[in-house]
Computed example of a mutant assay.
Amino acid sequence: MIIFWAGFAAAIVALIASYAIAGRDWGPHAVLLRIRGQRLAISGALGELTVFILCSLLLLILGAVSHHSSITQIVATYGLLLTAFFFGLLVFQSLSGWGIGGKTTEGSKSVRLASALLCYRIYASIFLTGVLAALLILYDHASVQLLAFEQLAEAPRAKLENRMPANIETFVTTLEWSALDMQMLLRSNYDILDPTLVFAVGIFVINLFVLMTPLRWMSAIGQTHQTLWSLMVALITLGAVCVWLYSVSYYPTVNAYMHALEAYGANLKSAPPDAVQRYAEIVLDFSVQKTAYWFVSNMIFSNGGALILIGLATSQVLFETVLRWRKKPNRSDILASPVTPD
């Protein structure tokens, strides 16, 4: 955690320093307020600092929710990757000329704005490295959980493969207990998605906070189209984890169990109709459960977090649609008006 707090402090210092050095040249990135008919422009550093603190809090929550992949473990495991990513971003920003204030101007202001851009690029690199750390937490948590899931999935199959029933009562009892164990195991499979849902919900909450406050007028971070990009990141991450979970773990596990059921069904010779019927019901049930439609629908309707996610996503899209239809104020006119100093 020492590295986390050191990066947190360094990012705040770099962010505040960048705006302090740039001064009024970064005035267009200010947060615009209206208080009792008066126009007030607050430094954009305050708005970006607010968003950065919220994102840092989300990273801490992810580390707490993912019991197998804390921030300390991620730094210890992927420290080299995170370091290379940080310096790679710095090099990329320097070569591409990307920065909050664009390219530096000529004359005496060039050196000052270049220094401001350097500070901001350090902040942006730390911020995006934190995003990578969050994605690594999701990946590491899912990897550990999937490995444990595959090991536990052997027990229900073993009950069918290693115990040949002596009579029909033993056959039905073994079948029922094995099917129950597999059902409970499949339900626990959805718990792997918990950190991913927390990540996505956290992004939507932060986006809604930006969109519903004056931060949305800050061109550095608050334009509505940039919140759509983060919306896409959250949805793509959730979709990728779901596809990975289904294709690597869920479907192969159910399919292997159905093969074990098929082999176990060879003991149904001359069995009474009720035993055959129960066996057929279990086979049909698992044949439906292994489909992608069942996996997605069960995840949505049995996991409250997914419902919250859909609701927040819908709210954000609707709110952004309303904002786009509304006439935006002219920033240049507002900034040209008398402004209360910070």
Rank of each mutant, 00 (worst) to 15 (best):
L160P: 07
M258H: 05
I35Q: 14
A30R: 10
N298L: 09
E176F: 08
R112M: 10
I137E: 01
S302K: 15
T105L: 12
R121P: 00
V75Q: 11
A10P: 01
F286Q: 03
I21M: 03
W325S: 14
D274V: 13
V144N: 13
V144M: 15
S70L: 02
Y19R: 04
A114R: 08
G107L: 01
A30V: 05
L60F: 07
S249R: 12
L95Y: 12
L197Q: 09
L113S: 04
T314C: 09
G88W: 08
F204V: 09
V75M: 13
L197W: 08
T196C: 06
S143T: 11
A30P: 02
T129D: 01
G222L: 00
L335I: 02
A20H: 15
F171P: 03
L117D: 14
N303T: 15
V210D: 13
T77N: 13
L138I: 09
A256V: 04
T314H: 08
A313M: 13
V31N: 07
A266E: 14
P28F: 01
M1S: 14
P165C: 02
Q73A: 14
L245T: 07
F171R: 09
H67C: 08
E161A: 15
T321F: 13
L40T: 05
V111C: 07
L57N: 06
S219R: 11
G97C: 05
V283L: 14
A271T: 01
L138G: 05
S110A: 08
T291H: 08
L231P: 00
A14I: 00
N298G: 11
Q226S: 13
G47L: 03
F286I: 03
T174R: 01
K103H: 12
L33K: 01
S56L: 04
I168Y: 10
K328H: 10
A41M: 02
M182L: 11
D342Q: 04
Q145N: 13
Q183K: 09
F85R: 08
A14T: 00
W294D: 10
H68Y: 15
A166V: 15
L46S: 06
D181T: 02
V51C: 05
N207M: 12
L33D: 02
A114I: 02
W294P: 05
G202I: 06
F85T: 08
Q145T: 15
G107S: 01
S247G: 13
D194N: 12
A22D: 00
W244Y: 14
T50R: 03
P272H: 08
I3G: 05
G47C: 05
L82A: 06
R331V: 09
